[in-house]
Amino acid sequence: MADNEGNLNEVNQVDEENQYIVEEADEENQVEAENEEAQISENEEFVIQEQPKKLIMSDVWEQYLTTAEIRKEDMNRLVMNFLVVEGYLEAVEKFQKESGTKPEVGVASISDRLAVKRDIESGDLEDAVEKLNAINPEILKTNFSLNQQRFIERIRIGVTIKETFNFAEKELKPLVEQNLAFLEELEKTMAILRFRDLPDIPEAERELLDNSRWFKTAAEVNAAILTSQTGLKCPKLLDLLKMLTWTQNQLDEKVEYPRMSVLPTGQLTVINPPWPSE
């Protein structure tokens, strides 16, 4: 009986040794496969490098540029759009006088929008709300950030629990029901109610009280007003610059050309012919 068991164990050992040998063979095959893959990738790189890029000289590029017709009226409208969106009130007025270009919205509208933004940034939220309601009542009903700030200000001021809670129920809850993405932020906000005084709020939750949030909210509201008035969020010039950057990145893959490397000045890199010109 014991002898039989011993033999069985020996047979098992032999089988396992064979298994080990097979595993070694597999590893060697894998190494060879990896080498083949490396060679293939090297070949691919070599093929790519052979492809020549078209070369355009600076003087040829200049000729191309002159074929593009840019009307002065279009340029003026572009500048005016920039001034309007950025809120340079005096500049808008003077530019209108000099060039005769009309802004998309009246000066009064720009002034109102800037006033709202200023109020929010300085923490004067109720003034901002009054002005905002005069401009467009719908914006207040859809902006979570502004109403969140108003809620937090009520806590800061020391408004009663009942009144603060009623505000949340009336103003914040409908916004969350329309868009559940705000729910998590609302939970953070409501959690502050469990503290009696602001000094009791621990450090990790103080980010809700940070003043930098006012600037973020102001920017949001400003963009909302702009969108409702002009359909734009940022200056058209900004869009054009983004398009320019994208276009140049596309061209870089196929053509070597005088690139506009310094956007603020419009400076182009120079590509001259290798021989001296007479």
Binding site: E187, M190, A191
Partner: peptide, 22 residues
């Protein structure tokens, strides 16, 4: 609930409780 800080593992539960009041 005030004694539970934001780094506590119970904090998300407290946030939901406070928000559920609405």
């Amino acid at each position: 609930f005030a004694t539970y800080s934001a780094d506590s593992c119970c904090f998300p539960e407290i946030q939901k409780l406070m928000c559920s009041l609405l």
